[in-house]
């Protein structure tokens, strides 16, 4: 079984862009290890010959026709933006 140590918690937190305190990291390492232990248990069930379930509802092939609908007006689209400039959303620069 995969050991859920501090390094993995930190890596996962980084992927999720979360900042954790040392205490939270320690707590989560234990909790996540417990969750994985339960998954281990589920893994013991014999699923050979069972198709993986991607969707639970028996619905398939739902389409819309290629028709243009009215978009939001620009002011509404930008309404919740923490920062904007002209008609643009404004964000911290990523590429150095």
């Amino acid at each position: 079984m995969m050991k859920f140590d501090k390094t993995i918690v930190e890596y996962t937190a980084k992927l999720a862009r979360m900042k954790l305190s040392d205490k939270e990291t320690r707590e989560l390492a234990l909790q996540l290890a417990d969750i994985l232990k339960y998954i281990e248990k589920l893994n013991q069930a014999d699923t050979s010959g069972v198709e993986p379930t991607s969707h639970v509802l028996p619905i398939k092939n739902v389409f819309r026709q290629d028709k243009v609908k009215k978009s939001l007006n620009i002011a509404d689209a930008l309404k919740n933006a923490p920062e904007k400039e002209g008609d643009f959303f404004k964000v911290p620069r990523i590429i150095e």
Binding site: R64, V68, S71, N73, F89
Partner: peptide
Amino acid sequence: TESKVFCGCSTQFGSAPNSQVCP
């Protein structure tokens, strides 16, 4: 296509910024 892949916004190139967006 005329409209986007998962919504009805236009795919027109060169329109005013953020004029072809929806939820």
